[in-house]
């Protein structure tokens, strides 16, 4: 059996009296595209931030490529992050830098690549997400939301990571742009041979990009299985979520 690229073992995270993650167990294999579903406030983003090392769990362990990185710091964490890409929900592009500087940020700052070479790499990567070189010198505020997502995707794949996280990749986009982003995610993840973990509540996106789907509810993974059986999961919670019904075991977050 191969070592999973990412493994979460009984991960718990609380904020004061609020227990957000109550023991998450999850495995992601190399080349797998896993989508984690969950309603608003179910702890998806917290789980992702723990996996990325942006938060430290109160309990449990996180393994990256077999290595325990739960409380890693310094060079160990930096080495892990070199192999991880991340597309944030808001894009999280740096306002003060141009598009190409955003895309090649890691190359410029961590790898200390020459600016000329980094710009060439950035323009090449922008092409992969269907953006022309004319965008390279613009600032994030000068481009549309869909283009910002593409730039953010380009930034997450430029260093050819082994694992890419996508946090609500289609939120705030119109259906056509959202579908184009889904296509780009599939294309780029496949061409890199990377594993992908996406968190979303957009079922159309989940159906399109996932090999496997997991559902997070009240801080625990309550279902995990192949994407093609999501409509016949046999789990009432998953069923209610997939069909977007207000009636069922999950109470609407209003």
């Amino acid at each position: 059996m191969t070592t999973p690229i990412l493994r979460l073992e009984n991960v718990k995270k609380s904020f004061g009296q609020k227990h957000v993650l109550k023991g998450v167990d999850l495995e992601v294999q190399r080349g797998e595209s896993l989508v984690v579903l969950g309603g608003s406030g179910s702890g998806k983003s917290v789980m992702l931030k723990n996996a990325l090392g942006l938060m430290t769990p109160n309990d449990g362990k996180i393994f990256f490529d077999g290595e325990d990185v739960t409380k890693s710091t310094g060079k160990t964490r930096a080495k892990m992050r070199e192999r991880i890409g991340m597309l944030f929900q808001s894009g999280a592009l740096f306002d003060s830098l141009t598009v190409w500087e955003n895309v090649s940020f890691r190359l410029l700052q961590a790898d200390r690549m020459r600016r000329k070479d980094a710009k060439e790499r950035a323009i090449e990567t922008l092409k992969k997400v269907r953006l022309g070189p004319d965008v390279a010198d613009l600032y994030p505020a000068e481009i549309s939301g869909g283009m910002q997502k593409r730039v953010s995707l380009a930034r997450s794949i430029i260093s050819k990571p082994d694992l890419i996280f996508f946090d609500e990749p289609t939120t705030g986009l119109d259906p056509i742009t959202a579908d184009a982003i889904n296509d780009l995610i599939i294309e780029q993840v496949r061409s890199l041979g990377a594993a992908a973990v996406s968190i979303t509540h957009d079922m159309a996106s989940a159906r399109k990009i996932a090999n496997n789907i997991a559902m997070l509810y009240e801080g625990k993974i309550i279902w995990h299985g192949p994407a093609d059986i999501i409509d016949n999961s046999g789990n009432d919670y998953v069923d209610q979520f997939v069909h977007g019904r207000a009636d069922g075991p999950i109470q609407p977050a209003i």
Binding site: L52, I84, M86, F88, S90, A92, L93, F94, D95, R106
Partner: peptide
Amino acid sequence: AMRVTEQIDALETLSA
């Protein structure tokens, strides 16, 4: 503004 728009988290994920 960088904190609330996740730019600081993005910095950390980019090893800065």
